[in-house]
């Protein structure tokens, strides 16, 4: 059985699945639009949580949040089911497919056979769509892949029941109710406001304040942990920023694309200028990645290189603070 499903490659898994699932239900929505309305742009620094033996830095909100916000703002009803029983998990998936509904799934990345080695970590908040079953193989549309792929029942079970942080617990989700009319303007404005508030949040580890906290921490890393560890931390930060899913520059380019699309949809040309500015900020994030990678590669560094990186990050925080304050004003 194979359901009709149009696969489109995306930069980020969650927006990609969201945009693909909705487009297949007749709501034409691009990935940047899904990302923007889901208020996907974010920054958080969690020095007390270690990921790959380095402090956690995330450029996106918690997994599942983007899709949930998107659904709420567009007025969709989404059904989410988690399982404790593996057999039941497969049965429900098969039944849902039989009813003609392609399903979004949360999975772990580590056991995905089609992923290259350098991406295989115990990261459990990946998303993909299953849109059919051919013999014993499930047909898979993984938004970060160029084409659709297949997983055997055993492989699928393994990734659906990956363990550890954000364990997916076999979770499936799909939209059950599609509204007749969507108020795009309201949804977009609400979403932009939320992003501005997030990035300007009066919380020391979130948004521009979080960036400043990292900027201060970078100065301390080499003294506190030694150069190899400091460089390892930097490398992990760059990975979070540039690795698969962010579309480059820690999602800044996707967000700029969203602002451009929003300018058209809301007939607000001023948003085009915001889009341009966000692109420039994204370019600066890319420069930061280039410099951080260079520090890593050279290994032996004076203290001034960390000062330089820290300064760059302070600068980015300052620019984004101005940006989101302006954007917040413009949207109300």
């Amino acid at each position: 059985m194979e359901l009709e499903f149009k696969h489109r490659q995306a930069a980020h898994c969650e927006n990609g699945v969201a945009s693909n699932l909705l487009s297949n239900q007749g709501i034409e929505i691009s990935e940047p639009m899904a990302f923007g309305i889901g208020s996907g742009l974010f920054f958080v620094y969690l020095p007390f949580v270690k990921v790959n033996h380095a402090p956690a830095i995330s450029y996106r909100p918690l997994p599942g949040l983007i899709f949930n916000r998107l659904a709420k703002r567009l007025g969709l009803k989404v059904k989410r089911i988690k399982f404790s029983n593996k057999t039941k998990a497969q049965q429900v998936l098969e039944n849902t497919l039989e009813n003609g509904i392609p399903c979004g799934l949360q999975v772990g990345v580590y056991h995905l056979p089609y992923f290259p080695d350098e991406y295989r970590f115990h990261f459990n908040a990946h998303n993909l769509v299953v849109f059919g079953k051919n013999g014993s193989d499930f047909l898979v549309s993984d938004p970060v892949m160029e084409t659709t792929t297949k997983l055997t029942a055993v492989e699928l079970e393994k990734v659906r029941f990956a363990q550890g942080a954000f364990a997916p617990k076999g979770q499936i989700y799909y939209p059950v109710e599609i509204p007749n009319h969507i108020d795009w303007e309201k949804a977009i404005k609400k979403a932009i406001k939320k992003t501005c508030n997030d990035m300007l949040a009066p919380v020391p580890i979130v948004g521009v304040r979080g960036m400043r906290m990292v900027a201060r921490a970078i100065l301390k890393w080499p003294k506190k942990h030694g150069v190899p560890k400091a460089n390892h931390y930097l490398a992990q930060m760059v990975r979070m920023q540039e690795e698969i899913g962010t579309g480059g520059g820690g999602f800044r380019f996707i967000y700029a694309a969203f602002l451009q699309e929003a300018a058209q949809k809301l007939n607000m040309p001023s948003l085009n200028d915001f889009s341009k500015e966000m692109t420039q900020i994204g370019d600066s994030w890319r420069d930061f990645a280039v410099n951080a990678a260079r520090v890593y590669k050279k290994r032996k560094n004076g203290e001034d290189v960390y000062e330089q990186l820290s300064k760059e990050l302070f600068d980015l925080a300052a620019r984004e603070e101005v940006f989101f304050k302006k954007l917040k004003k413009a949207i109300t």
Binding site: A10, V238, E243, G247, Q260, K276, A289, A293
Partner: peptide, 26 residues
């Protein structure tokens, strides 16, 4: 990987990237 980039007219388009050196380094 899919990237978002600006074309000559200033419009956002999608483009595929084969890889990026700083990323490969990390």
């Amino acid at each position: 990987e899919l990237c978002y980039a600006v074309n000559e007219k200033g419009e956002y388009v999608t483009a595929l990237s084969a890889g990026w050196e700083p990323k490969t380094i990390v």
